[in-house]
């Protein structure tokens, strides 16, 4: 044994020093760090959120040919493809994100929709799909996933209206709808107030409304990750956020190459 970690030398007494034998398996190390144990298995994780690992672990983009099978079964979100990698190997890996709170959740034959930036990692037994709500991802199946939130997560039951910035995700309930306060919309004055903020806007005139049975996940702060442009969903009739103008939307942006995953410039970090 090394002398490091004994009182006096190294960290102050009472601070835990971790090594592979003391790190938890698929559990939190502290509120901000999550440890994943890999034993020849695979995990999907968001690019760049690994902070350290013991053992031999490979990280490959989801476009890697060897990962074809796992991508076919567990990854159905081409817009976010450039943000996700697959970790495989043996060892223990620590995940963290901007010192945000990290929590793991178990889904059993369930579904959960989450803001794309808040999902940190998931087991391939779950399958990731793009939600029809832009900027959100849906996980379906059975397995464990890890999500981050700025401040601890609060679980609420519908019916409920939430602030858009505090929303992390929702499970099992139908998609939310927008709710605008009455005064926000009525008359010219209301419209003017909404547009300019003049005459006292509280900043809380607009909420997301949830009804039905399920759970809504909220974070205890209103800070979000910077939204990344993920491109647009296929321009098809009836696809929300399809970027096209109505039913006959034709290519507005640059044409997408066949088989292209995500937007090219984002893959270069631009």
């Amino acid at each position: 044994m090394s002398t490091y970690g004994t009182p006096g030398a190294g960290p102050r007494p009472g601070v835990t020093v971790h090594d592979p034998t003391t790190l938890p398996s698929d559990d939190n190390v502290d509120p901000y760090t999550f440890c994943v144990e890999l034993a020849g298995s695979r995990w999907f994780l968001q690019k760049g959120k690994m902070i350290a690992y013991y053992g031999t672990i490979d990280f490959n983009g989801v476009g890697h040919g060897r990962l074809d099978r796992i991508v076919r079964t567990s990854f159905h979100s081409p817009l976010h493809a450039s943000d996700w990698v697959v970790a495989e190997g043996t060892g223990r890996m620590l995940l963290a994100d901007r010192a945000f709170d990290v929590n793991s959740y178990d889904l059993e034959e369930g579904n959960l929709t989450i803001r794309s930036g808040n999902l940190l990692a998931f087991q391939p037994s779950l399958s990731l799909k793009q939600s029809i709500v832009p900027g959100f991802l849906t996980l379906i199946g059975t397995g464990k996933f890890v999500a981050v939130s700025n401040g601890p997560v609060v679980f609420m039951e519908p019916p409920l209206r939430v602030d858009p910035q505090a929303l992390v995700g929702w499970a099992d309930c139908p998609s939310p709808c927008h709710h605008y306060d009455h005064g926000y919309m009525t008359g010219v004055l209301g419209g003017l107030r909404a547009l300019t903020g003049l005459g006292g806007a509280s900043g809380e005139e607009h909420q997301f409304e949830f009804v039905g049975a399920g759970t809504v996940l909220l974070q205890s702060s209103e800070s979000l990750m910077p939204e990344q442009a993920t491109g647009v969903t296929p321009q098809q009739a009836g696809v929300p956020g399809g970027g096209g103008s109505g039913a006959h939307g034709q290519g507005t942006g640059a044409p997408r190459l066949p088989g292209q995953l995500g937007d090219l410039q984002r893959r270069f970090g631009l």
């Binding site: 090394s2 835990t16 620590l94």
Partner: peptide, 15 residues
């Protein structure tokens, strides 16, 4: 965020 302390020993190298 609070730092995590990781021990490195000959049998457990760290990345």
């Amino acid at each position: 965020g609070p730092a995590v302390l990781l021990r490195v020993s000959p049998q457990y190298p760290l990345t």
